[in-house]
């Protein structure tokens, strides 16, 4: 499988928003998340403001407890906000109830988790089309074929998750996230359970889906190498954005992380 061009550049797919290259897919403004009360009060996010631009691959990094996962959960409509605002496109998440959030996740958001992405009872293609099934939509067959072919899953479509390797399972998960053409994909440590070769392969797919499909991807990771695939890296510490890096290399990311670590220790 060639890693150089998994997606054709002359995309036959609709590339919405092409006319506005700096359009924002999602935005957090003064976003705070507080757990507990009184003595057990923990501020997980402290007035975070950030934009995720369309067709950009953003990595969120930070030591554990920095709030990077919480930021992703709040932005994805999986968790509620304590204050501030989180928007996907022009939709304010804070104003949505559970049913509306569910519909938003179903229609406009794609997810890739670290593990347990797939239903063991469904085969690969059924897992890929699950969000469309849930929404009662017919999948775009040409689009589906393209994604499946690109992910190298054509021969595995009728396999159950238990018959797939870890890398294949994660590729099915990415295919599922892409299949419904969401406005934004959130990936939570997608390579956390993979060996380095499978991980690299998966990150390559994610990376190249961004320019080719004008797909917006936000990935939480603690792995500098994974982060180096992104266009932009945001560093979180203690619930605040402390730094940002564009066009990162693994070494640059690692240096920054080390800097925070030492800062954290000296604190």
């Amino acid at each position: 499988m060639s890693r150089s061009a998994p997606f054709p550049t002359s995309a036959p797919f609709p590339t919405s928003g092409a006319a506005a290259p700096v359009a924002v897919a999602a935005r957090a403004t003064e976003l705070s998340k507080v757990y507990g009360q009184g003595e057990t009060r923990v501020v997980a996010l402290d007035a975070v403001s950030v934009e995720f631009r369309r067709a950009e691959f953003t990595a969120i990094m930070g030591p554990s407890g920095s709030g990077k996962s919480t930021l992703m959960h709040c932005m994805a409509g999986l968790d509620s906000l304590s204050s501030g605002s989180a928007r996907i496109g022009d939709v304010e998440l804070a104003s949505l109830n559970d049913r509306e959030l569910t519909r938003l996740r179903r229609g406009r958001v794609g997810f890739v988790f670290q593990a347990f992405n797939l239903l063991p009872t469904l085969n690969a293609i059924e897992n890929i089309t699950l969000p469309m099934d849930i929404a009662g939509r017919r999948p775009d067959q040409a689009w589906l074929d393209q994604i499946v072919a690109t992910m190298g899953l054509s021969a595995r479509l009728t396999h159950r998750p238990s018959q797939l390797s870890g890398g294949q399972q994660q590729r099915v998960a990415v295919a599922r996230a892409l299949a419904s053409q969401p406005e934004i994909i959130f990936a939570d440590e997608p390579t956390g359970n993979l060996d380095s070769r499978s991980g690299a392969e998966l990150l390559g797919f994610l990376q190249e889906s961004v320019p080719a499909l004008r797909q917006t991807v936000v990935m939480v990771t603690h792995d500098p190498v994974a982060a180096s695939y992104a266009d932009r890296v945001i560093f979180l510490a203690d619930g605040r954005i402390v730094d940002e890096l564009r066009g990162p290399s693994a070494d640059a990311v690692l240096d920054r992380m080390k800097a925070f670590d030492s800062k954290g220790r000296t604190n």
């Binding site: 994805a76 996740r105 179903r106 229609g107 997810f111 347990f116 239903l119 699950l130 849930i134």
Partner: peptide, 16 residues
Amino acid sequence: TREIGMLRAIGLARRD
């Protein structure tokens, strides 16, 4: 439990 959580995350409504 985990499966149901995942289903909820990718958009299966409580009702479903």
